[in-house]
């Protein structure tokens, strides 16, 4: 409200002080002469921090990252603090916050804090430890998969945008332009039923987490490629590219230093939302039995193991489900906030 009022009058009283010409001539960058410049990041932050849901998303993400990194240290090693692998058959399917039965569980197998924070599964393994161990796997699936699709997409989209008019020749014959070919490739990729395709390929390949990341990444290149292509097509007609070309800047430098930084904003947004959908895809694959092979725990795995006990031990379903929901929701909210904050129309 206060900001709105001052902008109605146009000038704030603090800005009315006389310009000190002497210092302005000596130092043209000084505050007296030029309005205070904010860096692009400060601009971005101003809009972003006003968006409550996006901030909440960011906070949740930071907490989850901290937990995932903590999970690496607390669940690995010779004698981990929280052991995700210890099998305690007397204590199977214990509800959350229950105490271990001290008489029947060997002393060295008792949970660290004398309590099962999130309950145990059908083998008596501590769900809290398994969730912590799986956190880094589930999060990194999203990051690696989206990294692959961004690299592929930016490469293909960049080639289509910048070299799109060049002809592909076989012998003396012009077949088609590079752009035509890449647009055709995009059409082909979009005609596949993505989830069904991922499922087929994963089922045919040997089970491994790297295959899952790679397949999710490779099938996701279309989004970034389209954004980069469209942006570069419009940017390359602008004067600053003409200027760069006229002073003899090599193509690679134009692409890397002038075109890509200007077209990266929509890619960043689609990457954030892409991470969310990659995490969802991984959990769906795990759920159908094609996920990360045991004994590695992921959130999707825990949920999938728990589906046999939905009536007897619903916490096996609720805990990973709600965790996945929170993570994906946080990524989505953060991505939407990013979209608004990177949109120059919404600044000021």
């Amino acid at each position: 409200m206060k900001d709105k009022k001052s902008s109605e009058f146009g000038i704030r009283s603090s800005e009315l002080k006389p310009i000190n010409l002497q210092s302005a001539i000596r130092n043209p960058q000084s505050d007296d002469f030029m309005p205070p410049e904010r860096t692009p990041f400060q601009d971005f932050w101003m809009v972003f921090k006003g968006n409550g849901m996006a901030m909440a998303g960011m906070v949740i993400l930071l907490i989850f990252f901290a937990l995932a990194i903590m999970g690496i240290f607390t669940t690995s090693g010779e004698k981990p603090i929280l052991d995700p692998h210890t099998v305690r058959l007397p204590d199977k399917l214990k509800p959350p916050l229950s105490k271990p039965t001290i008489d029947s569980v060997p002393k060295e197998n008792l949970p660290s804090f004398g309590i099962y924070l999130l309950g145990t599964d059908e083998l008596g393994r501590d769900i809290f430890a398994r969730m912590l161990q799986g956190a880094i796997v589930s999060l990194s699936v999203g990051f690696v998969a989206v990294g692959i699709s961004i690299i592929l997409g930016v490469l293909i989209g960049g080639i289509a945008g910048f070299y799109g008019e060049n002809m592909i020749r076989i012998g003396r014959y012009n077949i088609m332009t590079i752009d035509t070919m890449i647009v055709a490739l995009i059409d082909i990729q979009l005609s596949f039923p993505t989830f069904f395709l991922i499922l087929t390929v994963i089922a045919l390949l040997p089970p491994s987490i790297w295959n899952i990341m790679a397949i999710i990444g490779i099938t996701g290149w279309v989004g970034p490629a389209r954004f980069v292509r469209a942006d570069i097509l419009s940017l390359r007609e602008q004067e600053f590219i003409l200027a760069a070309k006229s002073i003899g800047v090599p193509d690679l430098r134009i692409i890397l230093l002038h075109l890509l930084p200007n077209s990266i904003a929509p890619v960043l947004v689609s990457a954030t939302i892409g991470i969310a959908s990659a995490i969802l895809t991984e959990s769906a694959l795990s759920f159908l039995g094609f996920g990360v092979p045991p004994p590695n725990a992921t959130w999707g795995n825990i949920l999938s193991d728990g589906k046999k006990y939905i009536f007897d031990a619903p916490w096996l379903t609720y805990t990973p489900g709600i965790t996945i929901l929170l993570t994906v929701l946080a990524f989505n909210l953060f991505g939407e906030g990013l979209r608004d904050a990177l949109n120059p129309k919404l600044r000021n």
Partner: peptide, 11 residues
Amino acid sequence: SYTLISLPGFF
């Protein structure tokens, strides 16, 4: 709607 988009369908 954000929550529904983020919910795993099987959950």
